[in-house]
Amino acid sequence: MAPILQSSQPWVEKYRPKQVKDVAHQDEVVRVLTNTLETGSCPHMLFYGPPGTGKTTTALAIAHQLFGPELYKSRVLELNASDDRGINVVRTKIKDFAAVAVGTNQCKNGYPCPPFKIIVLDEADSMTEDAQNALRRTMETYSKVTRFFFICNYVSRIIEPLASRCAKFRFKPLSEEIMSSRILYISQEEGLCLDAEALSTLSFISHGDLRRAITYLQSAARLFGSSISSENLISVSGVVPAKVVEALLKACKSGNFDLANKEVNNFIAEGYPASQMLTQLFEAIVEENDLSDEQKARISKKLGEADKCLVDGADEYLQLLDVVSNTIKAFNSLPEAFAYEC
């Protein structure tokens, strides 16, 4: 009987740094946390920054280095707040875990094993405000035996009472050379051929998000084999090719509504996400040299409005057509006001 095919591990997990000092290019954070590890004293922590910059990696690495693999499961509770984020969870799971007394002080295999437990709350900015408020008392009551690690993208969404109880650590977006060196290392380990153009394309489409870059690399390797080109990466990432964006802009410059409408129809038929087109249109407009500041402002305002409508679930074709119509008028300096405003 043939063995069941093992799940191939996502490279995002396979190449996750295991030690705090291995987290790339967050030097300020690493320096402070290394000191924490040596002394064993640990405040509540708040990690914030863009996605894919090592926040969760750092939190888990701290927990592993403090407790080691044996005590990790009994001493560390991980909650992803995206689904366990109501007030019920705070009343039950977190309080129950925080209230349990710490086990006997036993240093094993050289790990510090400080006398407290750790609760890691990932995606903490998705927690409801009630849940965050309910957490305040728990943090104070059990601060002797429990430490909280909050991980979020926007520190402004954590209520001030919680934020003021934590040591804050900001994670910066990764620069291109940092990401490139990491990607090259993974490519060598997995036996991939990656040329310089593909490498720069991968950095461009990832926007400083290393997890996204690694995921794109793995997706492209699965679909296309070990030789990966720039086009392969673009196709797995959902990024709109530059030619399509340029074709749409050219139609806008021509001032012909029917031509632009045809381009929008073709774009929708190709299946590209409209939100991605708005993002790339914005970048193209900002870099356009032939436009005045007022024209750029008009177009950017409409792009912002359309992006909001798309997030709320509006129809892609209609929103994109509205954006294109506004862009045509801005390019040709036609009057902006409508005959009847609501």
């Binding site: 509504f257 029917d258 509006a314 929103q319 057509l321 509205d322 119509s325 008028k329 409508f338 609501c342």
Partner: peptide, 21 residues
């Protein structure tokens, strides 16, 4: 006519968005 098309497609997008909400 061409000049009315811009305005009409704007209002179609506007009301479809409100319909969604």
């Amino acid at each position: 006519d061409a000049e009315l098309k811009h305005e009409v497609c704007h209002w179609a997008a506007y009301y479809e968005y409100r319909m969604r909400l």
